[in-house]
């Protein structure tokens, strides 16, 4: 490839193979899960295309350097810029939707989703980059190079997927059904005061007949740091209302004594298992995550 203006078939195969690995990686982690995001089909297409661009940047970086085209390093800054744009795009798009949803996602959850989308583009970039390195380094026939590149690319995908996989509320807490009680227009769930805006008989009756509630109890006391976080509770409430719909009223409240968190609402679809599942699967936000271990730091040095 020394200064050649036209790519050889082998180089072209390496680039195309690497782009394929990177794009496939992006598609494989582009799941439409219970959070129904990204939206199908246009959201899918957008992220597939940005994944393809990320994979292309990863695939051509090394062949460009091998051809002594050192300006190609600027590709990396271009990649960074592109990924940042993906994050910005997601953030803007979700922020614009805030006033149309049943409840707010909240800034912390939006930030988490946007970061996830950015990091998934890095995954596409890294897998195609590693695949391209492998294909270039292996001293065998082109089809063995391609197989090697695919294997390394997908191994990298597996590792990165596990590395970036976050925890959810269900990993750190128990989620159980709560008992709703309305006393003198005050709403209580398992004895925890929630709200006093059920001032009319209609509101009281509606909540007593159709209200649903879950109690989140942290497994360890220090998990309260995560669960008490405002953004985290808002994210759980958002997931609950999106899974079941929201006819009227949706509250989240924390209990200061035992660290329990209440999610209660009047859903459109009454399905307790779905409510518990939605809350359990709500991701723990990176911005709410705090290291418990830091509290044990030995500052004295003995």
């Amino acid at each position: 490839m020394e200064g050649a203006q036209i790519l050889s078939t082998e180089d072209l195969s390496i680039i195309v193979g690497s782009i394929l690995v990177g794009t496939l990686s992006r598609i494989l982690i582009l799941k439409e899960d219970y959070r129904q995001y990204p939206s199908y089909p246009n959201g899918y297409l957008i992220h597939m295309i940005t994944g393809f661009v990320a994979a292309a940047l990863g695939a051509v970086a090394l062949p460009a350097l091998f051809s002594k085209n050192f300006v190609a390093v600027t590709f990396l800054t271009l990649a960074l810029q592109q990924f940042r744009d993906v994050r910005k795009m997601e953030k803007e798009s979700l922020s614009d939707l805030e006033h149309t949803e049943y409840t707010y996602r909240g800034a912390a959850y939006i930030d988490g989703i946007a970061k996830t989308f950015e990091s998934r583009n890095y995954i596409a970039f890294i897998t195609s980059f590693l695949a391209s390195i492998t294909m270039m380094v292996l001293p065998y026939a082109i089809w063995i190079k391609l197989i090697g590149g695919f294997l390394v690319g997908f191994a990298a995908l597996f590792l990165l997927k596990n590395f970036t996989k976050g925890k959810s509320i269900g990993d750190i807490a128990q989620v159980e059904e709560g008992t709703i009680e309305v006393k003198d227009s005050n709403l209580y769930v398992n004895g925890i005061f929630i709200s006093n805006i059920l001032g009319t008989e209609n509101a009281e009756k509606l909540f007593q007949e159709e209200g649903m509630a879950v109690i989140i109890t942290p497994n360890e006391n220090h998990y309260r740091i995560n669960l008490d976080n405002f953004g985290q509770r808002q994210a759980a409430l958002f997931e609950a209302t999106r899974a079941l719909g929201n006819k009227r009223y949706a509250f989240t409240r924390k209990d200061y004594e035992k660290g329990r968190v209440v999610i209660t609402l009047i859903p459109i679809k009454r399905d307790l298992d779905a409510l518990i599942e939605a809350v359990k699967k709500c991701p723990l936000l990176e911005s709410a995550k705090k290291s418990h271990a830091v509290l044990k730091t030995n500052l004295k040095g003995d």
Binding site: D184, S185, N196, I197, L198, G199, T200, E201, N202, A203
Partner: peptide, 27 residues
């Protein structure tokens, strides 16, 4: 008081709090 509160709350798409003294606040 109940009827007035319900009517205003419906018209304004608002929530109602009943105070312990029996008065209503529409918020």
């Amino acid at each position: 008081a109940k009827i007035l509160t319900a009517d205003v709350a419906k018209a304004m798409k608002a929530d109602v709090t009943k105070l312990t003294n029996g008065d209503y606040v529409i918020i």
